[in-house]
C-alpha cells in the first residue's frame, strides 16, 4: 500500500517535471500546436510497442537518447561529476536495486553489479544492510593496474570498462579492494543488439572479460536516475552531480553537502586511499528493524547469510 502510493506520487512528479522541461522556452502563437519531435531521421531503428500490439521500429532520433559511441564514451558527460549517497538507515534488503539493475543491464541471474551485504562491524555492534555498487574511486586501483586501458576513468568520474578491449587478465579484480568486479566465466546466451557496441550501453559483459556497475551513464544522459536509485522502494539511494551539490532519490532532493553534514556521511574503507565517490549515511534512527531484511528472501539469498556471525547467533538462540 505504502509503496504503491509513493510510486504513484513519484511518477506524477516526474510527469509534471517533464512537462516543465518540454514547455520551457516556446511561445504560443495562438494557433493550436501539437508538439511532437519531428527532427530528421538518423537511420538507426529502435523497437517499441505500437497500438496494433506489435513491435515497431522507430527511428532513433525520436528517442531523446543521445547516441553515444565508443569514442565518446571514453570522455564522459561534460561538466558533470557523479556521486551516490546510500542511506543505510532506510535499507531493509528489499533487493529491488539488485533486480532492477540486473534487468536494466541484461545481466544473467548469477551476476550482480549491485550487491547487498549483511554487515556487522564487530561482535557486539549492530548489524545493518549494506548495498554496495562500484565506488567509482578518484584514485581507482583497478584503472592503475589495467595493462590495456580497457577500464578507464572519465571526466565525469565514472569508471567504465570497454568489453571489446578487455583481455580478461583479472588484475583489476584483485586490484579492487571492494570486490566490485565480476568476470564472465562462461558464454551466456548471445545478447543481440542492433546498435554498435559502446561501454556506456547497458549490455552484459562478453565471455572472458570483466564487467561491473557503471552508474548508468546512458540513463544520466537522459536525465534519469540509475536503475538502482529509481527502483528502491525506500529511497535509500541518492544520486546526483557533486558539482551541483545536489542529490536525489527521485522523490526527495537534498543539497549533498547538507545531507552529508547533517547525517554524518562517510565513505567505506576510505583509509585505503582510493577516494570513493559513494557516500554512506550511518544506520541510525532506522526506519525498519534490521530483521525485516531477512524475511521473504529467495532461498538462494538466505543461504548467503548463513555463515555470518549474526545469523549463526540467531540460530544458536533458537536452538537453546
Amino acid at each position: 500500500m505504502e509503496n504503491k502510493k509513493k510510486d504513484d506520487n513519484n511518477s506524477r512528479r516526474n510527469f509534471l517535471k517533464l512537462g516543465l522541461l518540454a514547455g520551457a522556452g516556446t511561445v504560443a502563437t495562438g494557433a493550436l500546436i501539437a508538439t511532437g519531435k519531428n527532427s530528421g531521421e538518423s537511420g538507426e531503428k529502435i523497437k517499441v510497442l505500437t497500438t496494433s500490439g506489435e513491435v515497431m521500429e522507430v527511428d532513433k532520433n525520436f528517442l531523446t537518447l543521445a547516441p553515444v559511441g565508443r569514442v565518446e564514451s571514453h570522455e564522459g558527460i561534460p561538466g558533470r561529476k557523479f556521486v551516490m549517497v546510500i542511506d543505510l538507515a532506510k535499507c531493509k534488503n528489499a533487493r529491488k536495486c539488485v533486480e532492477e539493475c540486473q534487468k536494466g543491464h541484461n545481466l544473467p541471474k548469477d551476476q550482480e553489479f549491485m550487491k547487498v551485504y549483511l554487515m556487522q562491524d564487530s561482535e557486539k555492534t549492530a548489524p545493518y544492510w549494506f548495498p554496495k555498487p562500484c565506488y567509482h574511486c578518484d584514485n581507482p586501483q583497478c584503472v592503475s593496474v589495467c595493462p590495456v586501458g580497457a577500464t578507464y576513468k572519465r571526466s565525469d568520474g565514472i569508471v567504465l570498462i570497454d568489453n571489446e578491449r578487455c583481455i580478461g587478465c583479472k588484475f583489476c579484480m584483485t586490484g579492487c579492494p571492494y570486490s566490485t568486479r565480476v568476470f564472465s566465466w562462461k558464454a551466456e546466451e548471445a545478447y543481440e543488439s542492433d546498435q554498435p557496441y559502446s561501454p556506456e550501453k547497458s549490455v552484459p559483459g562478453v565471455e572472458g572479460t570483466v564487467s561491473k556497475c557503471d552508474f548508468c551513464p546512458d540513463l544520466a544522459r537522459e536525465g534519469k536516475l540509475p536503475y538502482c536509485a529509481s527502483a528502491c522502494p525506500m529511497g535509500v539511494i541518492y544520486f546526483g552531480d557533486i558539482d551541483e551539490d545536489v542529490v536525489t532519490n527521485g522523490t526527495e532532493t537534498f543539497k549533498f553537502s547538507e545531507l552529508i553534514r547533517d547525517r554524518s556521511g562517510y565513505k567505506y574503507l576510505d583509509n585505503l586511499g582510493t577516494r570513493p565517490n559513494v557516500y554512506y549515511l550511518p544506520p541510525v534512527d532506522r526506519q525498519f528493524p534490521f530483521e525485516r531484511g531477512l524475511d521473504g528472501l529467495d532461498e538462494e539469498v538466505t543461504k548467503r547469510f548463513e555463515n555470518t556471525p549474526y545469523v549463526k547467533n540467531l540460530k544458536n538462540k533458537e536452538t537453546l
Partner: peptide, 19 residues
C-alpha cells in the same frame, strides 16, 4: 474537439494552447 496528437516513443502526447 481541440485537436489530435499521436503519442511519441514515451507514450506522451502534448498539445499546447494559449491561455
Amino acid at each position: 474537439k481541440i485537436g489530435e496528437v499521436k503519442t511519441d516513443v514515451h507514450g506522451t502526447a502534448v498539445l499546447k494552447i494559449p491561455a
